[in-house]
Simulated assay, not measured.
Amino acid sequence: MSLNNDQQISGLLFTPYIESTAANNKTVNAIQGYPKAIAEKIYQATRTFPEQTQVAIAVLDQDKPHYYGVQKHKDKIQAQANQDKIFAIGSLTKVMTSTILAELVTQNKIKLDDKINPYYAFPFKDNIQVRFQDLANHTSGLPRLPSNLEVDDDTDPYKEYDAAKLEEYLKNSLELEHANNSGKVPHYSNLAVALLGQSLSQSQNKDFAELLNEYVFKKYGMKHSYTSPDQAAKQLVSAFDAQGKEITTWAFDTFLPAGGVLSTASDLTRFAQAQLDAKNAAVQLTQQATTEQAGSYQLGLGWFVREQENGTKIIWHGGNTAGHSAILMIDLNKKKAVTILANVAVVHPEMGNIEKLAAQLLQE
């Protein structure tokens, strides 16, 4: 997640926000089979979404998952068993990329403070040196996006940005927007995590998709998680823009590590379960705050981390593409996690309801 000039989440997006139509909405709560209080919270959060919107919700509580999927159909919010349907998870992918980093660190294959530069056959512009950790926790000083990424057409903006374009940028245009970041205040960067994934691939001589399969998907039993829309086609939920028009599900090349995974509520619940394993050294490493305070949170490796005065520790990350949105929020003390996936654009004016709903369900 990131914030635009109006303090609104922009993530991987370039499109502007639109005005709310909530006041004129006449959608009916037709949810059956769920606890009444939960059904009402879900209805209030989703009633303004476009027709055919699906929202897949998973609540993991003390090792037991509960699923509360819904779909909007003919102005009714109805229960829908969609925990195995596939959605693009956008920037939530970044936590998985950092998980790979943590796995390699705990296996002594690389170190957090190692420079990535030796893994490239060319010098970076101005001999800029970059560390693995600084890419994972957004303290590298890199801009949000590279200057040679064409964003005039946002129908599928990351599909054509390949390794050759990244190399061109690193050689000729690399810059640090926050070069004097000695205090290690995080500045959210999609470029940083794309570069992290590329560097992990270089360090292990493996494609990034291969690393994802080895260290995340296979390790945690995520059998319905993928790295391209083509792989996920049969179970992929169509992407909708804020007005309910079906649009292209984004594909990724070099920016796959920053936002290209597609997954299900049930698979992400398995990933959440792993975060509660005190014996898993890699996931424990990702959850440790590594930056200064930025508002109410710090950054771990990938995770946003909030430690409250009462000892409660919450970790979370969201994700947004043009037509899908996601959030995973975990209370490490209560051993409870909430996953929400939706096939509606984050630019929808009520999309903030999804994060609020996740927080409400986490507190119950």
Rank of each mutant, 00 (worst) to 15 (best):
V130Q: 12
T106I: 14
L13G: 14
A102G: 10
T15W: 00
W303K: 08
Q308S: 14
N4Y: 07
E167C: 05
L262S: 06
V193A: 05
N320I: 08
A265P: 01
Q243K: 15
V237D: 04
Q71N: 02
E355D: 15
K356F: 10
V346P: 01
Q83A: 08
P257M: 13
Q293H: 09
K74I: 00
E40V: 09
N190E: 00
H66P: 00
V261Y: 02
D114H: 12
N353A: 12
A322D: 10
A258I: 05
A192Y: 03
Q273V: 01
T27A: 06
S20Q: 13
Q298F: 00
F240G: 06
H138L: 12
M1Q: 05
Q78M: 12
G183H: 09
H324Y: 11
A282R: 06
Q71A: 13
A164I: 14
A242Q: 15
T254G: 02
R306P: 00
A337C: 09
F304E: 10
G300M: 05
A58W: 03
E177A: 08
Q8S: 11
L135S: 00
G221M: 06
D114W: 12
T339S: 12
G318L: 07
E175G: 00
T248I: 15
N205C: 04
D63M: 08
S203I: 08
T21S: 14
K159F: 11
L357W: 04
N4G: 11
I247P: 05
N29G: 00
P118K: 14
L112K: 09
R144C: 02
Y68P: 01
L145Y: 10
I77N: 03
N82P: 02
F14Y: 07
T97S: 15
L191W: 03
D230G: 09
A342E: 01
L174V: 06
A30Y: 04
F132N: 12
D6Q: 15
K74H: 12
V105F: 04
